[in-house]
């Protein structure tokens, strides 16, 4: 348990930091609730992984990527807003997930389970989190400019559709990583709450992204500390630390 706790802590800190960073883009794209729904898109994949005995993140990522490609495709083909498309896919996934995930594993899938984090998976998660950080950083300026004005972005030669696909796949990978720590119900909060807290306290983009990553990291750290003391499940504790930071940030709002 000692090793596993350490593995989870290391995994969680890297994932938390990058999740907060990505969260700033999701907040800007008004995907706060969409990210919650995306967590559920992962459930059938997690179920399959549990049944067949491979890592839940891999199963989750496969289904998330499929879901996100479908959303991306639907968004180009129809004029329905993204949230409606996510809504349809999300309830479908939830239904499938509940059917195939063994009942004894269901709670773990929903709120996270750190007892299965191995050394190899820790290395894999850390490397993937770092890779994701650089992918996001690469599209960050373009994503911000596109949000401000698609016309200005196109005039600067930004390929908006391609950029959006990279962004959505990054979200999928982040969700897949995050569910291991906090579970599919809470993974959205891991990305959104640190960003929302940082937004309350920032006047510059630099501060905003730095603080979002920072809050992502310390919420995992203090969540883990509380877990050691109280032995409550780690996922909900991390999110509660995040929410507490958010409430404090409202007091200091700039």
């Amino acid at each position: 348990m000692g090793d596993q706790f350490l593995f989870s802590l290391i995994t969680g800190i890297f994932i938390g930091g990058v999740a907060g960073y990505l969260g700033t883009l999701m907040l800007q794209k008004r995907m706060a609730l969409v990210s919650d729904a995306l967590g559920h898109l992962a459930l059938p994949g997690m179920g399959l992984a549990l049944l067949l005995g491979f890592d839940v993140s891999l199963g989750a990522f496969f289904f998330l990527a499929l879901g996100i490609l479908l959303i991306w495709f639907f968004e180009i083909k129809t004029s329905l807003p993204m949230e409606a498309l996510v809504g349809v896919l999300f309830v479908t996934s939830l239904a499938i997930g509940f059917l195939i995930i063994p009942e004894s594993e269901l709670l773990h899938a929903l709120i996270g389970d750190i007892s299965k984090v191995s050394f190899e998976m820790t290395i894999f998660s850390v490397v993937l989190a770092i890779f994701l950080f650089f992918v996001i950083r690469n599209i960050y300026r373009g994503m911000v400019l596109t949000h401000i004005s698609e016309d200005l972005a196109r005039n600067e030669g930004i390929k908006i559709k391609r950029q959006n696909l990279i962004y959505l796949l990054s979200v999928a990978a982040m969700v897949a990583l995050g569910i291991k720590i906090v579970g599919s119900l809470l993974v959205g909060a891991l990305m959104i709450v640190p960003a929302a807290t940082a937004r309350n306290l920032s006047k510059t983009l630099r501060n905003y992204t730095f603080l979002a990553s920072f809050f992502g990291i310390i919420s995992v750290f203090f969540g883990a500390l509380l877990f050691k003391i109280t032995n409550f499940p780690l996922g909900p504790l991390i999110i509660l630390v995040n929410s507490s930071l958010f409430i404090i940030s409202i007091i200091f709002k700039k």
């Binding site: 300026r141 911000v144 200005l152 005039n155 510059t204 501060n207």
Partner: peptide, 25 residues
């Protein structure tokens, strides 16, 4: 071609100063 749009309502969604705005280009 340089383009000056009439307004940019979404710019307030992002905390950003002028310097950072120019760093997007």
């Amino acid at each position: 071609i340089g383009y000056v749009p009439q307004r940019l309502p979404f710019i307030k969604d992002v905390p950003m100063n002028g310097k950072e705005f120019f760093s997007l280009k």
